[in-house]
Design a protein around this nucleic acid. Structure first.
Length: 566
RNA sequence: GACUUGGUAGCUCAGCUGGUAGAGCAUAUCACUUUUAAUGAUAGGGUCCUGGGUUCGAGCCCCAGCCAGGUCACCA
């Protein structure tokens, strides 16, 4: 398969060949004995120190027999100084004039042995005594430039290209790389927080026969040997609880979840949640645990508990406010939901411009009111507690009010980032709740869960200790901690529609097509002669063109003609 | 799903009421031994997202589609 190469790509391929002709392997096998990183060199500068560094060549300023370049490694960039007489002590200046000046390009990986010094303008640099090509780059990178005032020109900003070619994005946009460094720091901080408390990181199935633990549309796949459908997990909650049944007293998992729903600025088909379950605790304990966890994480990621998101400063310093859902609705609307019937709630909604429909029960109506009138107002981290029972099928009934559950959600900047319960461990109650969900689903509530996980119920029948569980949307938390309003910015490879493949023709196909184009209809054997291709190439070319619907072979009596298709 | 903005050179972006397609950087050639958005000179480089239509003539106008961003709706 051939592809259209740009002028610059052709030049680089030509350089590749010339390097080989000079006996230089552009993709050498041997390890390169790197012993220094750009960042450390700058931090612990020692005049005259010998170093061996490696990285990508990212800029060059050639001035005749001397040249400055920038080498970029995992930690940043450092200036390197190439001097012809230094590199080529004898008469043969090929290494400098040809290899360095002409055959190397921006983007190439090179290894450099050199000596540290400061230039006349005071920039820490490496005087190159020897260099070797480590890997040739054949495709020109986008090339943002930073001027003396720190302003970036020609920045690589097109989101489509950046997401589709994240590798290029990461090479040229250090601030993008930084987001992912912070993302990993967050994972590490959480693990450390849990591990020091004795909780255990576990793994549970991604392929599940019953997708449980959340209300969401799953991806379905099929296991051939078992000949059964399997679902990609939408949550790991039910599996972690089985482990609590099994005797672990604290388990957590960073869970890749998959939901077959719409995509937008805040939803990717696969996303990461962290769930943790701790035995003998309740949701009050979990609130304290959560605020301490987030304070710890914010500090570990950014060095401060404060973070800016969407122009607002938020502070993850514990403790956070706790507001009941009932009180929240009173605060923002003056309406008290306590003791109200479904009819009363519904008519209030209609009067206040909230859309309702017949599938909505009390819980759903209350949730709508909260979502519409309250949610967006919580900028600083705030626990909203005590949710209606109907919308929390896995959560234990409230100790003081049977219409409520012991549940909290943590709101930040008007968005939910954590959800926690005093977990329901009464197997009979749990079964009834599942059955109720099933009824709702059959009534047409798309949010209700339509599977009953009897194995999970069996586990509960053996007995699960009182337990509190917490789920945190990791991607969302990273968004808050790195001030990114889009989930795509915090995922290395956000899901995208497949790139459109332009029709790519082989050389043989092109040759044949050109001839057919010039005649529009041509005798087949005449065409074959004109193309001058080998039998095999001819056959391949014709088949390819036919398959792509570009040409057609027609019979007129004994004569075969090739016709251009449009 | 609705609305909206965009898709032009390797990258960032211009483009006239519709008349042969432009800049900077990058690339190539030359000059230049401590520069730093290096500099100076010269040159090459384009299926203007795709497909239709209107027109003597379309990058530009019209229609349809593809991809992406944003807003909203839906959804945790």
């Amino acid at each position: 398969m051939s592809q259209q190469l740009s002028e610059q790509e052709l030049v680089r391929r030509e350089s590749l060949k010339k390097l080989r002709d000079l006996g230089i392997n552009p993709y050498p096998q041997a390890l390169y004995p790197v012993n220094a990183l750009s960042k450390d060199i700058k931090a612990n500068y020692e005049e005259g120190k010998k170093v061996i560094i490696a990285g990508r060549l990212m800029s060059r300023r050639i001035q005749g027999k001397a040249s400055f370049a920038e080498l970029q490694d995992s930690e940043g960039r450092i200036q390197v100084y190439f001097n012809r007489d230094e590199i080529c002590p004898g008469d043969d200046s090929t290494l400098y004039n040809e290899v360095y000046k002409k055959l190397l390009d921006i983007g190439d990986f090179v290894g450099i042995e050199g000596v540290l010094f400061k230039t006349q303008v005071g920039e820490i640099s490496v005087r190159v005594t020897n260099f070797s090509l480590l890997s040739k780059s054949l495709k020109p990178l986008p090339l943002p430039k930073t001027d003396s005032e720190g302003k970036v020109h020609d920045a690589f900003t097109d989101p489509e290209q950046r997401y589709r070619q994240r590798y290029a994005d990461l090479v040229v946009n250090p601030h993008v790389k930084d987001v992912f460094v912070k993302r990993t720091r967050l994972f590490n901080a959480m693990r450390e927080f849990f591990n020091t408390r004795g909780y255990m990181e576990v793994e549970t199935p991604v392929l599940q026969p019953i997708p449980g633990g959340a209300a969401a549309r799953p991806f379905v796949t099929h296991h051939n040997a078992l000949d059964i459908p399997l679902y990609m997990r939408i949550a790991n909650e039910l599996y972690l609880k089985r482990l609590i049944v099994g005797g672990f007293e604290g388990v957590y998992e960073f869970s890749k979840n998959f939901r077959n729903e719409g995509m937008d600025r805040t939803h990717n088909p696969e996303f990461t949640a962290m769930e943790i379950y701790v035995a003998y605790k309740d949701y009050h304990w979990m609130m304290e645990f959560t605020e301490q966890l987030l304070e710890h994480c914010a500090l570990a990621v950014n060095g401060t508990t404060k973070a800016t998101f969407d122009g607002k400063e938020i502070d993850f310093k514990a403790p956070y406010n706790r507001v009941t859902m009932r009180q929240s609705i009173i605060d923002f609307t003056g309406f008290d939901i306590a003791g109200k019937s479904e009819e009363e709630l519904k008519s209030w909604c209609i009067q206040n411009g909230i859309e309702v429909d017949d599938t909505m029960g009390k819980g759903k109506l209350i949730d709508e009111i909260f979502g519409e009138k309250c949610e967006g107002n919580y900028i600083q981290p705030t626990f909203i507690i005590d949710y209606p029972k109907e919308m929390s099928p896995l959560c234990k009934e409230h100790r003081d009010d049977p219409s409520l559950t012991e549940r909290f959600e943590l709101m930040v900047c008007g968005k939910e980032i954590a959800n926690a319960y005093t977990e329901l461990n009464d197997p009979i109650d749990q079964k009834e709740r599942f059955e109720h969900q099933l009824e709702l689903a059959q009534k047409g509530d798309v949010e209700a869960t339509e599977f009953i996980d009897y194995d999970f119920l069996r586990a509960l029948e053996y007995g699960m200790p009182p337990t509190s569980g917490l789920g945190i949307g990791i991607d969302r938390l990273v968004m808050f901690l790195t001030n990114n309003p889009s989930i795509q910015e915090v995922l290395f490879f956000p899901q995208m529609k497949p790139e459109k493949q332009g029709l790519i023709l082989s050389d043989a196909e092109k040759t044949i097509l050109d001839i057919v184009k010039s005649k529009s209809k041509i005798d087949l054997s005449e065409l074959k002669n004109a193309a001058g291709l080998s039998g095999k190439q001819w056959d391949k070319g014709m088949k390819g063109l036919n398959k792509n619907g570009l040409i057609r072979v027609e019979m007129e009596g004994d004569q075969k003609y090739c016709v251009l298709q449009d």
